[in-house]
Amino acid sequence: MKIKRKKALFVFLLPSVLFVVAFGVYPTIYSLLLSFKDVNLITYIRGTAKYIGFSNYLEVLKDPLFWGAFKNTLVFTGLSLFFQMTIGFGIALLFNYEFPLKGFLQALIMVPWVMPIMVSGTYFRWTFGDSGFLNNLLISLGWIKEPIRWITSEKLAVYSITFANIWLGIPFNYLLLYTGLQEIPEELYESAEIDGAKGWQKVLYITLPCLKPVILTTLVLGCIFTMKVFDLVWIITKGGPGGASHLFTTLSYSLAFDRFQFGKSSAVIILMLLIVIALVFALNKVKIEEG
């Protein structure tokens, strides 16, 4: 019976394992191999790419665009995680109480998360355009005299795409945190009220400590999802203007399909992967210590 169960388990797990190998392990190993070769369009087609060691990594690390993408990725990820978590937590606390139209509003909050990225990206590109909705609104209210270059300014572009990503990620954070709140025993709050605890004290000394595992898990998942964002940024700015809003993902794509420098593109992705692994490892270590 044990052998049959193991065989059945293997059969059920096999599709998942094959999927992970085909779309996760193989592309990663292939990208790692490409990062050590001089691969461009000609050498790729002819199959004559030469092994050049760490040259691609050295050239990438000397490229100002890489360090610009590094800074942008940190800003994009840091601000996204902070505001998604903070706003999501606030909404979760609000919906932890019963009030009219609660179900309808909960469904409404999930709209950004279920909306196709193409639609969301196009909406924000139109909203933040020089002659888009936001500038027209601010001008009509008399708050500005001329359009603000939200996505065509080297200084503002990265913050505009970060705002868009925050809006998209709030529902995910809210959902996880709200689920965690439902698991906190009501007796803890009742006991705190008897001891004279006020609302903010209950949040600080009961809610947050009980939610620590959920918060850390949300941060880990948010870090992974945010670092690999590509489509939203590409739709809104394509990494522009002049590469000012490039993240690791968009820079890698641009190197591969605009310049056909596949080796450098792979090097950027591998460096990004190492950073993600380091961040996730650090967050998981904090989670284990808290546990």
Rank of each mutant, 00 (worst) to 15 (best):
V60R: 02
T86R: 02
W67V: 04
S16K: 00
M1H: 11
V280F: 08
L156R: 07
F260S: 14
D195M: 10
S245G: 05
L188M: 14
L168Q: 14
I91G: 01
K2P: 00
A256I: 04
D38H: 12
E154F: 01
T152E: 06
I270D: 05
L283I: 04
S80F: 01
E98K: 15
Y44R: 10
L79H: 05
L188Q: 09
L105W: 09
K2Y: 03
T152I: 05
Q182P: 01
L61I: 04
F262Y: 15
S245H: 07
G78M: 13
L175M: 15
W143V: 11
F70R: 03
G291N: 12
G240N: 10
K202N: 00
L33K: 15
A197H: 06
K212H: 02
V229S: 06
L208E: 05
T237N: 12
V21P: 07
I166E: 13
L251F: 13
F54H: 03
V17C: 12
W167M: 09
F172A: 11
V158P: 02
A278D: 09
N40L: 02
L13M: 13
V111S: 10
L216M: 14
C223N: 05
I224W: 10
S245N: 08
E154G: 04
F260Q: 08
K7Q: 06
E289D: 01
T122S: 15
L32M: 14
T237M: 10
F70N: 07
G222W: 07
